[in-house]
């Protein structure tokens, strides 16, 4: 009997899992494909880019600078042993462009903006603001979810670019200003090894994918919240945990696709 019960439980949670995907998919569908409106939607989008993007800028820039500097310091210590400390430039730039830029930005974004989105929408739901929109014959998916989704998708790649650029300058500060690598060698070797298609375009593709996933999870968690304080705090935690896991897993897949050959 125990065995049958646990099999039934397993089946039930599998169905719940698939159901969750279905609901999340429908939400996204409803948010981005139903009745696009440019004139009324634009001010909402600007406001959300402010909330999602501008307010995440400081943490992204500061983290980028420090990560670039740490990377350069550790890299220098290893490379100097081989006498190839000039390769510090490509090492910092490529690790930032290919991995750390998109991934760390996505993780920070999930913690800073994703959790805030979930909490905001959860609060709107529990104070019946979403219901009240519906009763006013305004689709909350269009009014609330869609501008936040697009704001996330626009902001995160930009944040990733800022993170990476600042990180490379962080590496420059440590490598050139502090450790005394020749500035010309640093930049020329760096430029010779970074490629437009392989590195920068792939960086943008990665961060675009992460942007969709993180924003989607955050919005879905908020939209499906159990409307009470405990539910909101649970949903916020779930947003951070699930989007971090999703980002890391997808990063492996994307890396395998892009660089695995």
């Amino acid at each position: 009997m125990k065995l049958i019960d646990s099999i039934a439980d397993l089946g039930r949670s599998a169905i719940e899992f698939v159901l969750g995907f279905g609901r999340a998919g429908l939400m996204l569908w409803g948010a981005i494909f139903r009745w696009p409106r440019v004139r009324k939607g634009f001010p909402l989008l600007v406001r959300q880019i402010y909330v999602v993007g501008v307010q995440s800028m400081v943490i992204i820039l500061v983290s980028g600078l420090f990560i670039g500097m740490v990377l350069a310091l550790q890299g220098y210590n290893i490379l100097v042993g081989f006498g190839t400390e000039e390769s510090l430039g490509p090492m910092v730039a490529l690790s930032l462009l290919r991995e750390l830029g998109p991934v760390v930005t996505a993780l920070l974004f999930a913690g800073r903006a994703g959790s805030a989105l979930t909490a905001e929408i959860g609060l709107m739901k529990s104070t019946e603001q979403l219901s009240s929109l519906e009763m006013m014959a305004i689709d909350p998916l269009r009014q609330i979810i869609a501008p936040r989704f697009w704001a996330g998708v626009i902001s995160m790649p930009l944040l990733t670019l800022m993170f990476t650029a600042v990180g490379i300058y962080g590496g420059h500060i440590v490598g050139v200003e502090w450790k005394g690598i020749d500035s010309g060698a640093f930049w020329s070797i760096l430029q010779a090894s970074v490629e437009w298609r392989q590195d920068i375009v792939n960086c943008l593709i990665k961060s675009g994918v992460f942007a969709v996933v993180v924003t989607w999870i955050a919005l879905y968690r908020g939209y499906q919240v159990i409307p009470n304080p405990e539910g909101i705090s649970r949903a916020t935690t779930q947003t951070v945990v699930q989007s971090s896991l999703a980002v890391l897993a997808l990063d492996f897949l994307l890396t395998a696709l892009m660089f695995g050959r």
Binding site: T127, E128, Q129, S131, S132, E134, M135, M136, A137
Partner: peptide, 14 residues
């Protein structure tokens, strides 16, 4: 729904 409206218990002001 444009012909009806609802006053929610919490007010539900934005």
């Amino acid at each position: 729904r444009k012909r009806m409206s609802m006053l929610f218990q919490s007010g539900a002001l934005f």
